[in-house]
Design a protein around this nucleic acid. Structure first.
Length: 273
DNA sequence: TATCTTGTTAATCG
DNA sequence: ACGATTAACAAGAT
């Protein structure tokens, strides 16, 4: 489940390990995940030298001398730097480099590998609409953005056009840290609650970024991330006691997905002080 | 076999 | 236009 911490980690690893390499060949094994035909994809990128990598939300942006290479790993997957042989058995794209190494790309659901002409990122519909990186958001921005909105907090946080990078895995702890029920309506939030939410976003994502992402995702070099289940506060701990008050953690349906909450610490109505 | 799951888009209804 | 909901799509685990 790559979300902001995993994607930031991957982008940093790519920036460090792939910068300077030149693409010698590309295998497009899953053409439906690309935005152009395999032929155009190859002509756009074969021969390109990698200049660096960054991320915005769950997208990785690799800048090359010929075009932008964009990755979105969907609900999980790996970007592995390997020798040209043997390649990992599961792969949807392979980028071979002139030095004999290769980047094998796999995702097990709904990923994208796109290329965009230099200077034309504004034409790329799936990334042009992204909001600020969640980790870069200031409390004041968040306060301004939530005013005049009527949806639920959870839907707001997951909407990548508001702030980019939060997914359904880290959101459990973010909402718990903010002591907010996922279905609280934005127009019922007091200013101090929104300020607290901004802090909770930072506290919910930072530890995992520091540890190189979650343990269920692999780094560029095939190593597991350092953020493990013990680091998760209430997510995926149904029935276990809330560390704050001891109440059993509940899993509730929120639209088509679920959220883990402490029913005591995250009431739907704000308690009177 | 049936159901669940981490993402995103598009379509629909109110 | 916005918000809520659902289905669809490129798997894999249980």
């Amino acid at each position: 489940m790559p979300e902001l911490p995993e994607i930031i980690s991957r982008a940093r690893e790519i920036n460090k390990a792939l910068t300077g390499k030149t693409i010698s060949a590309i295998d497009v094994l899953q053409p439906k995940c690309a935005n152009v035909s395999p032929k155009k994809f190859k002509s756009a990128l074969v021969g390109a030298r990698i200049k660096g990598a960054t991320n915005r939300g769950k997208w990785i942006f690799v800048e090359t001398t010929k075009a932008w290479l964009l990755f979105n790993l969907g609900m999980g997957g790996e970007l592995l730097l390997v020798k040209r042989a043997p390649l990992p058995p599961k792969r949807r794209f392979v980028f071979s480099f002139t030095d004999g190494t290769a980047l094998a790309v796999n995702f097990w659901w709904f990923g994208y590998v796109h290329c965009v002409a230099p200077g034309k990122l504004y034409e790329h519909n799936m990334t042009r609409v992204l909001g600020k990186n969640a980790i870069d958001l200031e409390a004041e921005d968040l306060w301004g953005m939530t005013r005049g909105r009527r949806g639920s907090v959870k839907a707001f946080l997951l909407d990548q056009t508001n702030l980019a990078g939060i997914g359904n895995a880290y959101i459990h702890d973010i909402l718990f840290l903010a002591r907010l029920h996922p279905q609280r309506k934005l127009d019922t939030l007091a200013r101090d609650e929104v300020i607290g939410l901004a802090k909770a976003i930072q506290e919910g994502l930072r530890p995992s970024i520091r540890k190189g992402g979650a343990c269920y995702e692999l780094s560029l070099h095939g190593k597991k991330g350092g953020f493990v289940k013990e680091d998760i506060i209430i997510g995926y701990r149904e029935g276990e006691p809330c560390p704050e008050c001891g109440t059993a953690i509940k899993k509730i349906k929120t639209g088509s997905t679920s959220t883990f909450i402490c029913p005591e610490c995250q009431p739907l109505e704000r308690r009177k002080a």
